[in-house]
Each structure stands twice: as C-alpha cells, then as structure tokens.
Design a protein around this nucleic acid. Sequence first.
DNA 1: GTCTATACCCGGATAGAC
DNA 2: GTCTATCCGGGTATAGAC
Lengths: 184, 184
Amino acid sequence: MDTAVDLIAERGVRGFSLAEASRRLGVTVAAPYRHFADRDDLLAAVAVRAFGVFTAVLAATLDEDAAPPEQLATMAGAYVMFAARHPALFDVLFGAGLDKGRYPDLRGAAEPVQEMFMAPVRILTGGVPEAIDDLVTAVSATAHGHAALLLDGAFGTGPESVAAAASRASRATLALVAGRAALR
Amino acid sequence: MDTAVDLIAERGVRGFSLAEASRRLGVTVAAPYRHFADRDDLLAAVAVRAFGVFTAVLAATLDEDAAPPEQLATMAGAYVMFAARHPALFDVLFGAGLDKGRYPDLRGAAEPVQEMFMAPVRILTGGVPEAIDDLVTAVSATAHGHAALLLDGAFGTGPESVAAAASRASRATLALVAGRAALR
DNA sequence: GTCTATACCCGGATAGAC
DNA sequence: GTCTATCCGGGTATAGAC
C-alpha cells in the first residue's frame, strides 16, 4: 500500500498499476493477488487509509477553544491543505472512481470527516437538523471546490498557490457562515 | 469527436481510447492520426468544445434583468446542471489531466466562463479589482465543489440529487454574497 | 507468501501503399 | 483520408509448484 501511494503520487491514480507497484517492491505481479482480490480492491484499501489521514489532518488543526465559525474556517483550510500535501490520497478518494457499493467500508471511513464538520455547525445552528445539513454541505462543498481547483492548477503552481487556496477556502467559509440565513 | 464524447460518457476519460473510438466509427486505429497528433490532442479538442457548451449553458440561464446576486445564484445552479447533463464534458475539462501548457487554446476557451461570473460581480463590488477576484473565485469554487461532489455521488443518485445539488449551490452562492464582507 | 510460466487482451503509434 | 501491416509496450489475472 505504501508503494501504491508513492506510485499514485508520481503518476496519479490513472498511472497506477499492480504491475508497476510489484516491480518496485521487487516481487512478481502475482504476489499482490494473495493480498488483494484485484486492482480496485487495493485502491479501496488505500482509500480507507486516506480517510484516516484526512480525519487526522482535520483533527490536528482543530482548536476546541475557538469560536465555531473560526473552527469551520480552519477546517476548510485544512481540507485544502490535505489535498495539497497528500494529492495521491485525495486522488484516490475523489478521482479513482471506486464503486462505493462494492466497498461499504468506504462510507464508514468517510463518516468521521463529516462528523468533524458537524460539531461546530451544531452549535451555530442550535441543532436544527435541516440547518445543520445545509451548512455542513455548503461548507464541505466549498472546501472541496477550492481543493479540486487547486489540484487542477486554477490557483497557479507553487507553494503560494496552496496558501492562497487555503486562505480563500477559509474566508469563503466565514462568508457562508455570515450569510447562512440565505441557505434556506 | 462526437464518438469520443459518447465513449467518455460511458466509460469516463480513463476508459477512453483512440482504438475503441476508431472501432465504433468503423475505421482503423490509424485513421485518427490524420486528424489529431495523439490521444491527448483529441481530448484537448473535445475540451475546447466542452468549454463552448459550458459557456452556452451558463448564458442560456442568464437573466439580464435579474439582480446580480440572483444572477450569480442562477449561474452556480447552471454550473451544477452542466456537470449533471454533460458529465463527459465535465470529466474532460476537470478530470483528463490535460497539460495546459501544451494546449494554450484551453486557457482561451475557459475565459468566457470566468467572464460570465465577473459581470454581476463587478456590479456588486463596485469594480474594486481585489473584491471582484475574491467573490468570483469563491462563487466558482463553491459551484465547482457542488458539481464535483454530485458526480462523486455525494448527493445520492437519480434526478432529485441533481436538483438538490443545483439548489444548494444556488443558495450557497446567495450566502456567499450576503456574507462577502468576510472574504477579505 | 512468493515464484515461474503463461494466456490473454489492450493501447499507442508509425511506415508505406492506395 | 483511409487502409494494411506491424512494432512495441503495458496491464490483468490465473494455475501450479515451492
């Protein structure tokens, strides 16, 4: 799996193959099949790990003492940073086209991420279910959009572009919170 | 190119090959090379066309008489609708990993889209360059995030999910506009 | 858990004739 | 503009031995 991540980091999910990964590990192409049913099965396992890293990155930046809007803004920035620092993992999560019906574990692994966004939102919205859903979805989608466009090169290349995208995602989140009355 | 779009619609950009496209057209694999330098060259041509459709879809929903915030909200919804109705084109634009340095035409083809977002934003921001950039970027990224997550299945499957995603993108845009003071 | 060997299919790309 | 023919490389997956 480590080798898979390395390979994906270099060539993207598209360029990943069991054959090449096997070569790098110094084993034959038959070896992986003892551990994974097929190529997608390995990618799904990597994706589960990726959600773990994702959750950890978000959790690491969380400041329990900060106000809910700032917590959300920080998380949106961290979302972008995760994509920037772990493009291979982000690619597996959102660009591998994994059949989620086939890998139910993926849904489960994604839950903690959603849950992290919900905590501050619950406080902001007073616990109204629809309002929680509206704001969590809006913030997630906005963070995701900034991350996706960053990897697409829309913010330019180089370290400044990462910081710019993260900063913009944070501020957009604050704007969403400020204008959240318009969400429903 | 039509055949390419069909094929991409069925199997995604990853599953697209000149060989299969040639087969469907009833020509040999050598034929396309008279028209395109290589596979990416064809995809780039499709991408240019895709930007044209994208621009047309956004323009078609534009109501010149509407207030700027409503115009932006409508465009964000149209952005999502474009992704939903033309997933193959959306896939080529954002998932083909085309080398933009190699295809300068792509940048040019993308400009009208950005320009459409700028018109209402200019009115809203009074023409301050930084403010324009901030709001255009935030709205674009938010619309993009909703579109990307929709295609990823995050809003569920079926027609309702499309409407839900578009509606959420619109409302998130209104929230961004309402809270835009926080963008800088 | 890995190896050898193998079957099989697919793709990109080109040369040269028509 | 297309064909034939061809080269070359790559990947998936399995059977059976160790």
